[in-house]
Each structure stands twice: as structure tokens, then as C-alpha cells.
Write a protein that binds this DNA or RNA. Structure first.
Lengths: 212, 212
DNA sequence: ATTGTAAAAGAACGATCGTGCTATCTAGCG
DNA sequence: CGCTAGATAGCACGATCGTTCTTTTACAAT
């Protein structure tokens, strides 16, 4: 906005505020996925990026805003790496499969160095009070509703047994995803997500209508 | 040891070092289960207990030792609240059931105010390097081996289908336990552990030999 | 070349961190 | 009683925290 919009041959500036802003958020996501949002420190961030504390601070003007923007940036990564490939699959059971596979792949590829950003946040803020707990709870509720919708659509298409309890199935799909993330991260072994992959495959298989 | 051992009518001391020690560790477990071992602070602990920072510090002489002892104290709670009732059940499938139910009950009853202490530690240290990561990984490995033994014994007794992959079954039992802990804590709703209860029941049901 | 502006650095603040050293209090022993 | 030893408090340290204020830098427009 400040640079090059009206000038097609604008020389690259040594440093554009907006670029620095996203660079900070990228490093913040990295650090927070490993050590948590609570251990995310402005001084640490500055040292890691080779800039001054006040230089970093000026981009957010409070730690709360830094934390909020870091979460928002992580949501965009999640949307790009998990939601988008899932939505590319056709509606119904295969979109459910695609969503689970997209999540497992996102864990397996190490999109965040500390495993799934939101799994970490879930554990960090599940028991606390305050705005960060509420953000995590809202995200969680949103995903649960989304999976619930996917299940209902698949039922309507006759790809899932109509007798199946939606909340229960959503839980049984979510559980292996979450654990695959934690165990593969803990053991530094991306191969462990295959345990989750197999659990998902069998749970989805059981959810199919008896006729099939 | 220092008091009353040889004197049956020892007057109660205003404060016995050993009693204070366990009181500190109890508060430390409470705080750490909610906010994590990383946010556990000696000053905070002292304020919460109405004593001085140096008074608390003197019991451990380093923060590392405080953290180690807090983990050890939590292991004792886990042994008392989960392992002991599980081991009271007869060997085989019913001990597996008892173990899962003991865990879910321990979550449901809110033994720790922040949900399962070790589930919190798993997420806090899964991606870090250092002694605390190694402790968590060792605990994790220990439980996995224990569940593996339980499954093998149940197989030997003919209560579990011999074709079943032990590691896969262990994973599929562990996943609902973990998620039930996180979701019930996040939503402040102990009722959510019933989702885990039902998932466990069905998974165990499927593990039975086909003959049965 | 001068001016304006946004980005970043620098310096300082009060608070809190982990840790060490010293002093005070109290229970039990002679 | 005085003495000893352990538990606790008080105080100070250097480091780091989040935050504010001021200054320097580097580019864009004039």
C-alpha cells in the first residue's frame, strides 16, 4: 500500500514494514507451536529475528495483540494446509476422509515445528480463564460443528449409517487425529501418524451403512 | 523422622518441614495442572501459600528440583487414583476396562483442577528438548508398554482376538482417554467424558475374539 | 537538496524471575 | 537455662519481562 502500487518499477526497499510484520508472525508461530503462547516473549522473538525489542514491539503495541495476531496467522495456515484440501474433495464421506487425511498430512509434514499449533493451544489454555481460553474454545466448537455438518451431509447422501450418533462419531474421528499429533511430536517420529491413519480408516469403515 | 518418632505424645509443632514440603508440592501440582510446569513460579507459589519466596525455595534449592519433585508427586497421585484401582481388577480384558474407567473417572472427578496432569505435560513438552521432554517421553513409553502387556495377557487368556495389532489397539484406547480429558476440561463439562467412555466400550467390544 | 514519514533502534521504567546470603524464630536436648 | 539445628523470613543481585519515550535511519515525494 505504501510502496509500489502506483509505481510499477519501484525499487525493493531494504525493509518493508508489512514484510517484517509477517516475518515476525511466522517466527512467532514457530516458537509458539513448540513452547506455547505463554512462553512467547518479545525479547526472545527480537533476538531470534536479529532485531531490537522495541522494533518488534512497535508492530503490535501490546503482547495481547501479538498473541491474537499469532493465533490468526496460525488459523490462516490451518485453512490453507488442512481446510482447503479438504474442501477440494466432493461432499459427503469422501470429504470427511479428505479432512482427516489433510490433518494427518499436515502433522506428518511438520507444517509447524512443534506439531499442530491448535493442539498445543488446546492443552495450554483448556483449564485457564480468560480471552485465550475463550478463543480456543470457540475454535474447538467451530470445528466440532463443521465435522457435525460433514457427517449430516454424508448421512443425507446415504454414505453414513443414519443410526450413528453424530457427536460420538465426531469425537471418535477427532481423538486419533489429536493423539497422532502428540505422539509423533513427542517421539520425533512422523511415522506414528500411521496409527492415526489406520484408526480413522477403520472408524470411517464402520460408519458406512450396513447395506453397503 | 525428626519429630515424635521416639516421643508418642509429641506436641504438634507449629510447622513441620516435611508437612510444609508436601503442602508446597500439592499446590504446585494444582497450579501446574492448570497453567503448566513452565508457568509454575516460586514467587507465585509462595504468595499462594502465604509464605516467603526464600521459605519455599529452601525446600528445593533449585527450580529444576521443584519441577522434578512436582512430577514425582503427580506420579504418586496417578498411581493412587488410576493404577491402583486398575490393578484391583482381575487380569485380562477386565483389567484393561478397569484401567480405562479409572482414568476417565480420575478426569471426571477433577483429581487435578486442570485435568490430567500428564496430558498437560505431554502437550507442554512434546516438542521441546531437555530433561523434562525426556521425562514425559519415558512416562509415555512406560504406559504404552504397560498397556501392551495388558493386551498380551488378555490375548493369552483368549479374551482378545489374537489377530489384533497390539500397538494399534493401545493407540485406539489411549486416544479417547486423552481427548475426553481435554474436551471436558476445555468445556468445564465432566459429562463429556461419557463420549470417551462409549468409545472405549465399543473399541473393547470389537477387540473380543470372533467366537465370543 | 530538502522535507516528511514510517520503521527500527536505544534507553529506561517498574515488576518479577531464580538464586544466594544473612538473620530470626522455635523445638528439642544437654 | 543455654545450645544447636532446622524452618522460615528478609534482603539484594543480575536477568528478563512488557511497556513507554526519544532518537536515528532510510526511503518517497517534492
Amino acid at each position: 500500500m505504501r510502496n509500489g502500487i502506483n509505481n510499477p518499477r519501484a525499487a525493493p526497499r531494504r525493509s518493508d514494514g508489512a514484510e517484517t510484520h509477517v516475518a515476525i508472525l511466522e517466527k512467532a508461530m514457530e516458537l509458539a507451536s513448540v513452547e506455547g503462547l505463554g512462553s512467547l516473549t518479545i525479547g526472545r522473538l527480537a533476538r531470534e529475528l536479529g532485531m531490537s525489542k522495541s522494533g518488534v514491539f512497535a508492530h503490535f503495541r501490546s503482547k495481547q495483540r501479538l498473541q491474537r495476531e499469532t493465533i490468526e496467522a496460525a488459523r490462516r495456515v490451518f485453512a490453507r494446509e488442512v481446510m482447503r484440501p479438504a474442501l477440494a474433495a466432493p461432499e459427503g464421506l469422501s470429504r470427511i476422509e479428505a479432512f482427516c487425511e489433510a490433518y494427518l498430512s499436515y502433522v506428518e509434514r511438520g507444517v509447524f515445528p512443534g506439531g499442530c499449533f491448535f493442539a498445543h493451544m488446546l492443552a495450554e489454555f483448556d483449564a485457564r480463564e480468560g480471552p485465550l481460553h475463550d478463543e480456543v474454545a470457540a475454535d474447538q466448537r467451530g470445528w466440532a460443528e463443521m465435522v457435525g455438518r460433514l457427517i449430516r451431509v454424508a448421512k443425507k447422501k446415504g454414505e453414513i449409517d443414519p443410526e450413528i450418533d453424530e457427536a460420538q462419531l465426531a469425537f471418535e474421528l477427532y481423538a486419533p487425529l489429536e493423539l497422532a499429533n502428540y505422539l509423533s511430536t513427542l517421539n520425533r517420529d512422523p511415522g506414528m501418524v500411521d496409527l492415526g491413519r489406520r484408526a480413522i480408516r477403520e472408524t470411517i469403515g464402520r460408519a458406512r451403512p450396513a447395506s453397503s
